[in-house]
Design a protein around this nucleic acid. Sequence first.
DNA 1: AGTCTGATTGACAACGTTGTCAAACCATAG
DNA 2: CTATGGTTTGACAACGTTGTCAATCAGACT
Lengths: 338, 338
Amino acid sequence: MASKPRATMREVAALAGVSLKTVSRVINDEPAVSVDVRGRVLKAAEQLDYRHNMAASNLRRKVGRTRVVGALLQDLGNSFSSSLLRALEDAAREHQTAILAASLDEEPDRELALVADLVSRRVDGLVIMPASDRQDYLDIERRAGLPTVFVDRRPRGIDADSVTVDNVAGAREATEHLIRQGHRRIAVLSDRSSIQTAALRLDGVLAALATAGLESRPDLVATELRSVEAAEEALLAMLSRPEPPTAVVALRNILSVGCMRALRRAGLTGKVAVVGFDDFPMADLMDLTVIRQNVSEIGATAARLLFDRLGGDQSAPQHIVVEHQLVQRGSGEIAPAY
Amino acid sequence: MASKPRATMREVAALAGVSLKTVSRVINDEPAVSVDVRGRVLKAAEQLDYRHNMAASNLRRKVGRTRVVGALLQDLGNSFSSSLLRALEDAAREHQTAILAASLDEEPDRELALVADLVSRRVDGLVIMPASDRQDYLDIERRAGLPTVFVDRRPRGIDADSVTVDNVAGAREATEHLIRQGHRRIAVLSDRSSIQTAALRLDGVLAALATAGLESRPDLVATELRSVEAAEEALLAMLSRPEPPTAVVALRNILSVGCMRALRRAGLTGKVAVVGFDDFPMADLMDLTVIRQNVSEIGATAARLLFDRLGGDQSAPQHIVVEHQLVQRGSGEIAPAY
DNA sequence: AGTCTGATTGACAACGTTGTCAAACCATAG
DNA sequence: CTATGGTTTGACAACGTTGTCAATCAGACT
């Protein structure tokens, strides 16, 4: 338990009877080392349990890459963020790069703090699903050579790469789909309106309603819903009012879950139509019709942009919009009950 | 785009007209600095966009902690791993520690490679859900002062802290629950048998069957199931045979999903009883009865052990077993149909 | 004025590694 | 035997920072 400090190249060199620099050469597989010296060094390193110190190495190297990128996502526990992280990881692995991951939980302060932390750790790049209003504070870091790719949300106050979906169009299509089934009283469940994606999706829903000549009914629009439970309660309240909705658009995966729970509690599963935004692992088992974002593709694309930048790509920032898709599974194809 | 290199303390010192060491003092909030010097330094640092370099700092410091821990989990995209990661993150944040996360995908080689990588990055500690048979290779690292906590699976060939559930008991209870409903032909869906948890859970099922005087029927035991699809196909095959199962124990979350899909395709949802091992976000909406592991508690406990060790705790390794729970939601309480 | 005290500041070495360059070595050719 | 040329090796500085310690300074006291 005494925890002896780790051996350094200096100690390996002493044991092998060579200079420190020769050890460095062996460890880094540089060519100009005779076979027996190489053998002696490796043996000494083995005996002392030598482990290369990447931090020291990076500090000294000319082009010191840490081979770490930061991933600042909304909530690593949510399937959207975790799927994204997984896609990033797979891409990063191909570049021998590790990922420092953290959750922002829609808190701008945490975003600032975590970016500062990652910068002081000198990560090679950043993938961020921002919680803040404006990201102009990142300009300094980008100019200092920190490539940054935005995912899920467009950057504001700064021109940087982004990978998003067309949230307005997706939400519009979800709504139009329900309108086509004959629905006129369509409820909307949305997240905090300060969140860019939430606002855009709500816009899309309202646009579709307006186009169809349906007045937007405040009593059927619930926003600022931050949890499964909040969505559940909000929808339950709507369902118990005089003119209940015959269909629901749930604008985020956890809101879809709350929605399904509410319908079940009200005994209305299969009676009230639902279209959700975001697909998730079990959605098919609940017959849930959704607007699916291809999360793997979003992640892979973001990683590609990032590593292209790290490879020296200096071209203008790109804003890639990944195709979404209406996946019909039944819940969205239910006709109005009354 | 020219990406000027970041300013160093030396440059800040030059601009502020003080020595490098004084800048260091200001940046680290050390006391013995006069107010006006402090002001000059901060202004210079601001002007040059100075960012502290943690790697260099750690290298020099006496007790150089990187304030990074590694989390080697099975699959960051799976809800079990991602929930665990989230719990670890929350605990780590309280210790101003970041997390390097990676997926092992049940590949022992990747485990070895990732551990080596994390060691060379000098992470302060390690949380690992191992993919390998034996982890004796970690002994060297532990002796060199790398605290290691195992989650979900017990260590083998090495004595280190662990946080697990009682897989045998959990699986036994799941099976007994079905037996109590009168089931005699109980199918089992299990993962690769080389995976410790899979093997233990299967043991638990077989023990329960044996105790109840039910012979284990090879035609109702499917192992080596690595995906939702594999589970789905395996169960579908069983259901189409002469003596189909009247109940199923699915020993992992994705296998539960495959199971539910198969039942739905066979038109047997609600007819065949199911108990799953592992809860997951939508399980309640599918009426799925499960053995729930308290994943947040597992993660929080693992983090507590780890940070206790980092705080100097030298006591004997602990093996904490977190309570599991049978959550009845309907699918497990269905009586045999024939 | 001279001395002391405590606060402030800076010079220098060191953390573990790699880049640079010159020295030492070896074998072969003349 | 010496000159030549290539291969192998090591001394030294440097990366950006902090620990150590000594130097300087201002003010207070004799």
